[in-house]
Amino acid sequence: MKDVTFGQYYPAESFVHKCDPRMKIIFLIAYIVAIFVATNFYGLAVCFLGLVVTVVFSKVPFKSVLRSVKGVLFLLVFTAVLNVFFYKGSGDPLLHWKFINIYKEGIYYSIFLICRLFLLVMGSSILTLTTTPVSLTDGLESLLYVFKLMRLPIHELALIMSIALRFIPTLMDETERIMNAQKARGADFESGSLVKRAKALIPILIPLLISSFRRAEELGDAMDARCYSGSKERTKYKKLTFTWRDAVCLLLIALILTGVILFKVFFAALV
């Protein structure tokens, strides 16, 4: 349970930590675009290079970043395997057995897909590792300001998100506590068949659900008691400002995007 790094802030004093959250969000979006624009391994290599540079300047140990992949590893492998089986390439299949056809291109494509998702997850975890949930929401809110003109309740949405992020560690602690309590009563989460293990989660999930409702109610009451309203008059304690660091970020994005596009234009697409 503790291995999920998503939404886990890694405290450090670094270049990336000090960047404006809006810049970091833009960076991430551009980075994701770059990953999907890339159609060959050269392009992905450029993205990877960008990732490595970011990780180095964030002072977050590479291990922590890798740990975020662990949580979605199953998904990665699952997608890759599906792709191997269902990809229809040209020419003769490498392997043919009953209705299963495996093509050379399918295997290439699967590896490509894994790399792509890998970069995607690691990139996003850099954002959450170096940005506190609060400043992340502030950044999002500020970026989504445009949609306010379309009468979307941006402030409320941002609040919902920050509450959700803020409660992740709390719920993790709670999970651990309940797990310990049930373990003390002989619950076994580590052995047995998949069905048995899934069933063993019931004694954790129900108390967790109940306590989430309780917490939600308490939080709502507390906000009510302080007369919270998401009105226009609310001001910010921390004002976001762009600095020279963000200019450097912009430069890096430009470099990555140019690199990816150049490789896309001058080298053949993988598939």
């Binding site: 309940i178 310990n180 003390a184 009563r185 002989g186 619950a187 076994d188 019931i202 004694p203 129900i206």
Partner: peptide
């Protein structure tokens, strides 16, 4: 544990109390 009432989960009291017995 502290606040042990937060670990209750079963449909009825009997099932909840019997949980440990069934495991051990």
């Amino acid at each position: 544990f502290q606040y042990p009432e937060y670990q209750l989960f079963a449909e009825n009291v009997f099932e909840d109390v019997a949980f440990g017995l069934k495991n051990f």
